[in-house]
Amino acid sequence: MGLSWMAWTWPTAAFFIFIALCLVAMAIWEWRQPGGAPRRGVLGLDTTRGDRLFITLLGSAFIFLGWLGFLGTPLWGALVISLAYGFVVFRWV
């Protein structure tokens, strides 16, 4: 059975490879430093590393959608904001 019905493109494949690599990196991080590094961040939420990745990915999706809805393409600005947002989440949330 081929995968042509899934209509793969290189950009979407790269996107899923990035997500998969994030998960692999998180697994390695957990293996090196077990316990998930739970803490209470600036929002008063108890988060582990996995929670912080989830908040980063979900927030980034909305940053991209917001950029696209209000400013349109190109999306480099949204990428920069998402990276900064991810850093803030992993550092302080």
Binding site: T12, F15, L65
Partner: peptide
């Protein structure tokens, strides 16, 4: 879900033929 993501950046008129459109549909 992956298939939906793939569809969301393409145009199709059937017969499993697709044309890449980028983020046009989202916009």
């Amino acid at each position: 879900l992956m298939t939906v993501v793939n569809y969301s950046v393409q145009e199709t008129f059937g017969n499993n033929v697709f044309f890449f459109e980028g983020v046009k549909w989202f916009e």
